[in-house]
């Protein structure tokens, strides 16, 4: 009995640890790759650097967002994500791997959006779609 208690405790603890470490990774990647423009609290700056706190907008574009992060947004060139929804450009970020993008999204989700978990398959699906455009 006591051993099973201990085991449960241990599992809960390690699960805890896993999730925080994923948010930590996401927080670090967000601060490194996104926060310069979007702000450390995702507050943005005017309309040029948009804030990232609008849950409704995120829900609406959930499928596109990983691709925007990876491939950027370019209003001038006839590239993938030509300003349908966008007021400004965003640089591409080929360094970011699907796991990084998923970590960043889950960190923001935890902090601001409260949507369902962004798992890595979903991110990869979006990147496949983005690549095919």
């Amino acid at each position: 009995m006591k051993i099973s208690h201990f085991l449960i405790f241990f599992f809960v603890l390690s699960a805890c640890n896993m999730s925080t470490s994923s948010f930590k990774e996401g927080a670090f990647m967000f601060d490194t790759h996104c926060a310069s423009c979007h702000g450390h609290e995702a507050e943005g700056l005017g309309q040029w650097y948009p804030p990232l706190k609008d849950t409704a907008y995120i829900r609406l574009h959930r499928r596109e967002i990983p691709s925007w992060i990876r491939y950027g947004i370019n209003r001038d060139k006839g590239s993938r994500f030509k300003g349908r929804f966008h007021q400004t450009d965003m640089p591409e970020n080929h360094i970011l791997q699907p796991a990084d993008i998923s970590n960043i999204l889950n960190y923001l989700n935890e902090k601001f959006w409260n949507l369902s978990h962004f798992d890595i398959n979903e991110v990869e699906e979006s990147l496949n779609w983005g690549r095919s455009l």
Binding site: S36, L45, Y49
Partner: peptide, 16 residues
């Protein structure tokens, strides 16, 4: 410069 992805937004935030 307006398309600077690194330090400029921070500098501009501080100018603001």
């Amino acid at each position: 410069f307006t398309s600077c992805p690194t330090i400029c937004p921070k500098v501009m935030r501080n100018i603001m």
